[in-house]
């Protein structure tokens, strides 16, 4: 029963990790940028939701109506004013720029909120659903449903819309995409906006399930990078599968054996997968060979 409980929790928690990783993998797919600021942006999203719940008594889920557009706009701003002007050595300079953005955000949050830990509260956050002997924490269930809905939307936008075609064309071959008239700058701006908008949602969920401070980003970024590498850079579906796979492996090993070996077991599997498929589970080999 404990193993079944661990599998369920792994799937539920994996859902919102997939949502956070989806933004990271999309941005890499379109722009060739590893968004090193994603951890800090998730924490920023958590603080924004926290502030709205504390000062305006807004429900954390309702707070997303305000924080998601704000963070999306921030993503577009970062692209227009910090990423787009970079003309040479774009990959390395973008990486450094996002690192600077992360440091700046952490510093500002530290000044505004001090370094004490806070957590987002709502009346239902500690509730859980009980089915037989199995326990389903309500916040995990709600977060999973929201993540599943948003990932479905993301899938629909990517594969069923005109923007999605432009996005996929930019991912596959940005030069050819420009030649056929796709405004790749606009696609990149919107993609970074979406990626950082998703961080607002991931941040709210993270803030309801963990106490956090401005430095909490360090624990997030390493996990998200691992998910994206296993799933394959640029693959939203890969991020979903990898996130759930990682969390289930870790949780089951934690209850059956030891939490210390949970991460180790996962990393060993990751190494084996990468030996066979260096591009990750769903990544496309040589897609950037042009």
């Amino acid at each position: 029963m404990l193993v079944l409980q661990a599998i369920i929790e792994g799937v539920l928690v994996g859902g919102f990790y997939a949502l956070m990783a989806a933004g990271l993998t999309l941005v890499f797919g379109v722009m060739d940028i590893v968004n090193f600021a994603i951890g800090a942006l998730i924490v920023l999203g958590a603080y924004l939701s926290y502030s709205l719940t504390i000062h305006f008594h807004i429900d954390p889920f309702v707070s997303l109506i305000f924080t998601t557009p704000l963070m999306t706009a921030l993503g577009m701003f970062i692209y227009v004013f910090l990423i787009k002007p970079i003309k040479t050595n774009k990959v390395v300079m973008s990486l450094l720029t996002m690192f600077a953005v992360a440091t700046l955000i952490e510093g500002i949050l530290d000044i505004c909120y001090n370094s004490g830990f806070v957590q987002i509260h709502a009346s239902y956050i500690n509730n859980s659903l009980r089915i037989g002997k199995l326990n389903f924490p309500l916040i995990y269930v709600l977060s999973f449903l929201l993540s599943a809905f948003l990932l479905s939307c993301l899938y629909f936008v990517t594969y069923r819309t005109k923007f999605g075609r432009s996005l996929r064309a930019s991912m596959q071959n940005p030069v050819a995409a420009r030649l056929v008239g796709i405004d790749t700058d606009r696609v990149s701006m919107i993609t970074l906006g979406i990626g950082i908008g998703l961080a607002a949602i991931g941040g709210m969920i993270f803030g309801t399930t963990n106490a956090f401070n401005a430095s909490s980003s360090y624990d997030i970024i390493s996990r998200l990078l691992v998910i994206v590498i296993l799933g394959g850079f640029g693959s939203v579906g890969g991020a979903l599968v990898a996130a759930i796979f990682m969390l289930v492996i870790q949780d089951v090993v934690a209850v059956v054996w030891s939490p210390v070996w949970g991460s180790t077991a996962f990393y060993m599997i990751l190494m084996l997968v990468l030996l066979v498929r260096p591009q990750g589970l769903f990544g496309k080999k040589g897609v950037r060979a042009q």
Binding site: L2, Q5, A6, E9, G10, V13, N135, P137, Y140, N210, D219, I220, S222, R223, L247, Q250, D251, V252, A254, V255, S258, P259, V260, G262, S263
Partner: peptide, 14 residues
């Protein structure tokens, strides 16, 4: 015993 970088405590608590 859990590692310091743990962020998901549900299996330990369970």
């Amino acid at each position: 015993v859990y590692p310091a970088e743990t962020t998901d405590f549900s299996p330990i608590a369970s």
